[in-house]
Design a protein around this nucleic acid. Structure first.
Lengths: 220, 220
DNA sequence: ATGCGTTTCAAACATTCGTTTGAAACGTGA
DNA sequence: TCACGTTTCAAACGAATGTTTGAAACGCAT
């Protein structure tokens, strides 16, 4: 609060430092989580001083919040929730689009892969940033899947059945993110190239469609 | 290595201290994970000295390994993998038994709930203890589900299809463990009493059976 | 070139961590 | 009661952490 100015409006070399900090912090937070990530590690990779984070963002927590929001939005922009399928397409196709985009967000390599790992870490050590993320991003994502599932289930199926179907669909996707350490140890030779990924999308879509229809059949 | 004796054979008050350390360490490791759990916290709850962990177990990591193995076995003993269903029962019933036991292990309250949280933490920060756990416990658990799924899929379905079906079944269960922070934020009023739990087992079983059969129909 | 707000920097601060240490307390067989 | 191995304890150690600090370097309008 003492000699801190308004770095947000600065656009000289300061902005470059800010960008480097955000980029490297993304890596470090994804690798170690919020708590175990160290400012020194971030600043070293960004070739900045240890005080840079506090100067530009006010602290570790504020930096983390910005990193999390930024990367989630970037991933959602690269792989939109609808998977490129028109809203007026039949629900089976919309389901496939949703699953396809979600799988891509999970399996993408490179910098965009960080958001999934950060989100996975939020599941075991939630930070205040998760509340914001759920409210601003995840809730609308869930709502878009809910519309698809409701269209598939029909109007007579209750909210509870809808919710557990949502869970059954999403779970099959995020499983490959959240349980990777067990999967890779159980099946060390198992890998997913881009063809396998399409096959995986097919599988999850088929599996889910059958499951949803069976639920609809059993419910009313 | 200096003045450490052989505490394992001691059965005086020393054994009580050891048990308290194991019990309290279970709580603390489940709450904070291996890295963020502190020996001081554990020893304070166990009403023991900070040096007790090093004396009785040799270090934090050894204590953690013992806690993890112990609790996983305890949960698996309380809720056996087959769910109390005979091995010669039809595969649909065996699937339901497997799912039912798994759901109970995930949703159980009290001390036995710790092993699920610890395992969830291993998914984002694997420790050497995970390798042991996969080799000794999880692999056989996966094998027992694989037998069920193979019986349901039939002999003509390939290994890849079997594996993704395994994933689809297990994922729906562990989802409620791994994504609880998001679920509770999306649906704050959602809770699972014991009736809901049975309904959830029904749902996952129905959903999975339909999914597996659809996969079998599509595969050969 | 000068002055001033902005940005960087090395150093230090206050905590917290796992572990070690050496002595004190304890328990038990002789 | 005594002696000795076992267990507990308070204290301290060394390393690592987020943050603060005050000065130095920088950049640009005047």
């Amino acid at each position: 609060m003492s000699l801190k100015a308004n770095p947000a409006t600065a656009d000289s070399g300061s902005a470059a430092t800010r960008e480097q900090l955000l980029a490297r912090a993304t890596e470090v937070f994804a690798e170690h989580g919020f708590r175990n990530a160290t400012i020194r590690d971030i600043c070293q990779r960004a070739e900045a001083n240890v005080a840079a984070v506090n100067y530009h963002f006010g602290g570790k927590e504020e930096l983390y919040g910005e990193v999390l929001r930024r990367n989630f939005r970037a991933a959602l922009q690269r792989f939109p929730a609808d998977g490129g399928v028109r809203p007026d397409a039949p629900p089976t196709q919309r389901l496939r689009g949703f699953i396809r985009s979600f799988v891509q967000r999970i399996f993408v390599t490179g910098p965009d892969s960080c958001h999934g790992r950060m989100l996975a870490r939020e599941m075991v050590d939630p930070t205040p940033a998760l509340d914001t993320l759920v409210a601003t991003e995840i809730r609308s994502l869930a709502a878009s899947l809910e519309r698809i599932v409701r269209d598939l289930l029909g109007p007579k199926v209750g909210d509870w059945q809808v919710r557990v179907c949502l869970a059954s669909v999403v779970s099959q996707i995020v499983f490959y993110q959240h349980c990777r350490p067990v999967i890779s140890r159980l099946f060390p030779d198992l890998q997913f190239d881009s063809d396998d990924l399409e096959a995986l999308v097919d599988h999850i879509t088929t599996f889910s469609l059958a499951g949803i229809r069976a639920t609809a059949r059993r419910s009313p």
